Simulated assay, not measured.
Amino acid sequence: MVKTSGYRKIANDIMNKIQRGTFRPGEKLPKQTELADFYETSRVTVQKALNVLTLEGYIASKKGVGTFVKNQADENSLYESDATEPIGLSQKANGRQAVTSKVVSFHVRTPEDEECEKLAIRPVDNVYDIIRVRYLDNQPFRIEYTVIPVGALPELNTAVLENSLYQYVEKATGQAVGSAIRKIKADMSDRYDQKYLDCQLFDPVLEIEQVVTFADGRPFELSEIRYRYDKGCFIAIHSV
């Protein structure tokens, strides 16, 4: 067995085996120690890979029994995300639900001081200012306020933004999306939440502010993502 590095690669391999039918719905997966031996890695790395697959709705664990392939993808798992893993919505849905986007605003401007600091750019470096509404099966799911340096994606346009941004980023730059630093808090709905997410005047919303980097650590996105209170859940996974 060729050594596989990285829990994401392991998660992708197991996911592919589930999709191909190597692991069938209802089937119990091998023990974590067996998977660690197979992938020539640590049990902690395997556990992180299984956590990703749980969040993406492919598997479920039963305490004292084991981990099983789910009979069907639980659409509620789309409301859950790893607090540090920058998995795009289109990738997370993986064809289980239709993901569509509406570009509310898209223009170029000069960056603010805080944006320069967080994106490691100069005041003379222009940025894209983007507002998108994302839908799952035609139901409003979240609204995204995104700032991206023009120099990072010089050919970015509205047609791209109507589809998967992260898939485009990796294809256009040849760089993998790395990690996300997120700040999570509650807020009251504003007029855009009420207009685009069908929130009521005093509804709470879940707000995620994040800086997303390439795999080499360079930041390329600063965004604020707002969910209806009943549409978002972030899970932090800590190794002990």
Rank of each mutant, 00 (worst) to 15 (best):
V150T: 12
F220T: 09
C116Q: 12
L119T: 07
G64C: 04
T45I: 09
A215G: 02
Y192L: 11
K183G: 12
S189C: 06
R132G: 00
G57D: 06
F68C: 00
R24D: 07
K171E: 09
P86K: 00
Y229H: 11
D187C: 12
D37R: 08
E75G: 10
V46Y: 01
L165C: 02
F68G: 01
I121V: 05
P204L: 04
L197I: 07
R43L: 03
K171N: 10
E112F: 13
T22L: 07
E40W: 10
Y196I: 11
D13R: 06
F220M: 02
P86T: 02
I181T: 15
K102N: 15
P140I: 09
D198K: 12
I148G: 00
K171A: 13
Y79T: 12
D203M: 00
T173K: 03
V46K: 01
V99H: 03
K183E: 14
T110Y: 13
V147Y: 00
D216M: 05
G95C: 04
S61Q: 08
L50D: 00
E75I: 15
E209Q: 12
Q210C: 03
K102S: 10
L161R: 06
P25G: 05
K9H: 13
E114V: 13
R226Q: 05
Y128T: 11
D216N: 13
V211A: 08
A120I: 14
L55F: 02
I130P: 00
S223V: 06
A11D: 04
Q175L: 15
A83V: 04
T173R: 03
I131H: 03
T67R: 09
E80F: 14
K3C: 05
A49K: 01
D190S: 08
N51F: 09
Q91V: 06
V133S: 04
F23M: 02
K70C: 11
T67P: 07
I235Y: 06
I208F: 05
R20G: 03
T158S: 12
K171T: 12
